[in-house]
Each structure stands twice: as C-alpha cells, then as structure tokens.
C-alpha cells in the first residue's frame, strides 16, 4: 500500500486538505469554504479524499491555520504548526531559491523573509484587515462581480483611479465616491488592487528587504490584478506556485512527515471514522472565578471528547480525550 501524508489548513475563509506521497508530491488537494463551520468543512474535506484514502495509508498528519487546534483534536494530528512556518516549509520544498514570500489569505496577510533557505524574519498585519481576501470579497460582492473575475477585469484598466488603502472603511467610501463620479469599474478595481498592495508594502512589509525570487501564495494569489500591482510597485517578478491556494496545508503535511519520520513515530490519525461521527460543540461561561473563561466542549456522538478555552486548566485537564 502506498503511503501518504495528510495536511490540513483550517483558515478563516477556506479549509484546505492535501495528500502528499512519500516524495512530497501532491496527490490530491481539496479546497472548501469554511463557511463558519470548521468541523463540517474538515469532514467534507475528508469525504472528498475518501477514494484516495482507501488505497493509501496515512503515516502522518499535520494541521495549521487559525483553526489548527480544533482540527488537531478532531483528526488526531501529529504536529500542529503556525501558518508562517507551514507556508515557508511548503515554499522551500518546491522553490528552494525563494527569498521572499508574500501571503494574503482571508483574514490576514503576511510577509516571510528567507535567506539561504532559512526563515529569518516575518511580519503579519496588525489590528487592520484592510488588504486581505475578505475585504476584496466584500467589495466584489458589492459591485456584483464574481470574485473569480475580479483580477481579469482589473487587468483591463488603462487608467486606474486612486483609492485610499489605509483602511477598509475609507476605501469603501472612496470607491463609492469614485463610482458615483463616473469612473469605469475596471479602473476602480485596478485602483483597489494598487491600494491594497500599497497598504501591504507600507504596513506589513514595512522596513523589510524584499529580494527575488518572490513567491505569492494564499487565496488572493488567484487575483491577477493584485499580482500585477505587486510587480508594478516592486519592479520585480512575482511568481505564483501551482498550488498557491493550499500551500499552508502542504507545509503542514511536510512538517508532519518530517516530524514522524525523524522520530520514528506512529501516527495519531484517527481515520475515516471522523466522517461518520456526529460532532457537536457546546460553549459555556465558567463561573468559577471572575475570569469568566469561555469554555468550549467538543462532543463526538454525545461523548465528551475535549474541552478547552479555560485559563486555569480546571476544565481542560479533567476530561479524558478518547
């Protein structure tokens, strides 16, 4: 039986699953909208991989993304890693000469600086989500344009308008103003791409030395308008990896594989039974002390599996995970 690694990236907007073979080549990828329900997304992801999982044996599982803890409890992950390390691991495996990674996802954007195949620095957006995928999504929705066509429409523009990029709220009112003035939609979209890139470079990438070769990953990399705007402002080539949308999951899989192989461990993967189990989440506010922690309890077929969210360990330590 062929062996494979499973990587899961549970992001704010999308949940991605990948299967890699032992040579770390992609066997299959699944891209699912999280749609506010990460458990369902993970289940659906595994169902989509059912055919492959029947003929292959999973020897390592890694999770990443903002829902990585939840995912790891659900599937029994061997390694739980943050998105930055995961993205870098994926990029360096396939593109070893990468020196800069630009990653724009649904809720956050980051820049990762690599020299000699080592991550030496990184930055993430702070409190502001202007310039991330969900903002573009929202604007496309408002203009009635499918997000998949956003990029190609923006590329048509010959005379982009200037849109304020500092803040999503200002950008929106600026866009409405420009649209009421009679600017063409492609000019506004191109202007928005430029504003987003400007914001990224002056905010997230502030003070970082961006050297080629540059990789652009994350869901927003599908937007050709943003890629073009990056290239214009950086005056450098920006490459987009084949599987730009699942690089986080690939990274998690690679890290899991390395982890399991180097330690000669057995995987904790619980298998396909996840897809048939009925999961339920309950949340409650602990009244034990004035901290009022928000406790989350995960039930599988009405049996308590795990509890987390408390500061003191009163809840999380007393429950046995089955």
């Amino acid at each position: 039986m062929q062996k494979c690694t499973l990587g899961i990236d549970v992001g704010s907007v999308s949940t991605n699953l990948v299967l890699l073979n032992e040579e770390k080549h992609l066997v299959k990828k699944v891209y699912i909208n999280t749609a506010g329900n990460p458990i369902k997304a993970i289940k659906n992801g595994l169902i989509a991989l059912e055919k492959e999982l029947k003929i292959m044996e999973v020897y390592a599982v890694g999770t990443t993304g903002s829902g990585r803890q939840l995912a790891s409890i659900l599937v029994g992950a061997d390694i739980v890693k943050n998105e930055i390390t995961a993205h870098a691991a994926a990029a360096l495996t396939y593109y070893p000469d990468t020196q800069t990674i630009l990653e724009i996802g649904g809720q956050d954007s980051k820049i990762i600086i690599i020299r000699n195949q080592i991550v030496i620095d990184f930055a993430m957006n702070t409190v502001c989500a202007a310039g991330t995928g969900s903002f573009l999504d929202r604007q496309a929705q408002r203009l009635g344009i499918p997000i998949t066509h956003f990029g190609e429409i923006a590329l048509k523009s010959k005379n982009p308008t200037r849109i304020a990029g500092r803040c999503a709220v200002f950008a929106e009112s600026d866009m409405i103003h420009k649209q009421q003035m009679g600017h063409k939609i492609e000019d506004i979209l191109k202007g928005l791409c430029q504003a987003l890139v400007r914001n990224f470079l002056s905010n997230v990438a502030k003070g970082k030395e961006i050297r080629p070769s540059i990789l652009f990953q994350g869901g927003v990399a599908a937007n050709a308008g943003i890629k073009k705007a990056f290239e214009e402002q950086l005056k450098l080539n920006v490459a987009i990896p084949n599987d730009y949308d699942v690089m986080g999951a690939i990274g998690a899989a690679i890290l899991a594989s390395n982890h399991v192989v180097s330690r000669k461990k057995q995987t904790n993967f619980v298998g396909m039974k996840i897809t048939t189990r009925n999961y339920e989440i309950k949340s409650l506010e602990c009244g034990g002390c004035p901290n009022c922690c928000e406790i989350i309890q995960l039930f599988a077929d009405k049996k308590l599996m795990a509890t987390w969210g408390d500061k003191c360990g009163k809840w999380s330590s007393t429950v046995a995970v089955s």
Binding site: S66, K81, N82, E83, I84, T85, D108, I118, V119, I120, D121, F122, M124
Partner: peptide, 15 residues
C-alpha cells in the same frame, strides 16, 4: 493571533 505570532517568531529564532 497572539499565539500564532509568538510561535512563528520562536520558530524563526530556532531556525
């Protein structure tokens, strides 16, 4: 978000 930044930072330092 806090933990992600901290974990990634420590990964960078270790690397």
């Amino acid at each position: 978000g806090f933990n992600t930044r901290l974990e990634a930072f420590l990964d960078v330092l270790e690397g």
